[in-house]
Design a protein around this nucleic acid. Sequence first.
DNA 1: GCTCCGGCTACACACACGTATAGTCAGCTG
DNA 2: CAGCTGACTATACGTGTGTGTAGCCGGAGC
Lengths: 203, 203
Amino acid sequence: MAELDDLTARARIRDAAMQLFGEHGFEGATIRGIAEAAGVSSGLVRHHFGSKQALREACDAHLVKLIHRLNDQALAGAGGNHVAAARIAVGPYHAYLARALVDGGAASLFDEMVRLGAQWLADIDRTRTDAPDVAPEVRAAVSTAMALSITVLHEHVSRAMGVDVFSPEGDVLLARALIDLYSHPMLSAEDARKALAGLERHR
Amino acid sequence: MAELDDLTARARIRDAAMQLFGEHGFEGATIRGIAEAAGVSSGLVRHHFGSKQALREACDAHLVKLIHRLNDQALAGAGGNHVAAARIAVGPYHAYLARALVDGGAASLFDEMVRLGAQWLADIDRTRTDAPDVAPEVRAAVSTAMALSITVLHEHVSRAMGVDVFSPEGDVLLARALIDLYSHPMLSAEDARKALAGLERHR
DNA sequence: GCTCCGGCTACACACACGTATAGTCAGCTG
DNA sequence: CAGCTGACTATACGTGTGTGTAGCCGGAGC
């Protein structure tokens, strides 16, 4: 039921909605435009989803389901860096994801990523010589936002990098940049100490 | 002229527009709503800006001017980590900035941040023992997106952290988390080597 | 004092939107 | 075949929107 009806009109409408919502935003996209993109009448959109808001909620639900599936796959597969998992092809839905996040939606998605990230951070904390300054949950919140930033701001990142980050070449270049960034601290231990001291002084 | 007329109706309209555009998106915000928030008639909005699109462009221009000023201050001030500079209070405009970035706007702002970041990265590259795997510009593109992610996703970050990142306490906690993250690599040199090798294998 | 001009308002218009409704058609069940 | 159900369409309605226009009002210049 989940795979077969991906060709039904209902699924086509949902896909078109996710694309157009992502492209023009929720208010910017129109039911008529979505219907046209899906190759159906605007009335059918209402018939299946009832209202524009309900259509949006259906899109959110579908996104969550999709991400969950990708997440499970990533966890089951090669040793899970949750950052890499976040970059997994969200397919043509990355624009919708970005909009949803900025609109304040997709909260459960973000929270689950934080949960996974906190777990992962707590793990590598055990190999650290110095005690972490803040709880893993807090650091996970920040690094989750950072991980998602590539998707949310992919247009700018692609422009600045000179290659689309969702193309094969861009993906490789991005991965190499991430590996380099994540394996080289931007602040030395001394810099960090100085920064922390400066922080104390400011209060 | 720049400071005095910040009390003029024109400036009030612009500020109200930036707030409402940030809150509801460009399509979601209405000229009438903006006019009401600014305490003027909707006709005056048109009188001053001509059209909704032109009003948006005026907002963009104002944002760029504002960020440039903040940027210059940050560069002149305490030894410039461009990441910290990005977090500087964009005031009540962070929502607008987030929308503009996701809409594909604010490109010049992003690009300039990349330029500054690349410079900064090239500087610290000289203290590295191993040669960087990718150009500073590419790494700067990624880390700029990461730096902006706190602002763009501030709602989610605040929820996950349990404190508003734009409050004084949240700001301190965020700074400490950032210092910890930026001074401790998430990948060991060995992990990085393995990840790179895995990348080669995939091609 | 009179005119002129720009900030400012009130009002009207055309249009596109979300929503509602009535109806068509294919397929199934008895 | 009759009857029903649900996917689907065509069309209409009310509303809120961006935009246009005519006019008011206070102050500056002659």
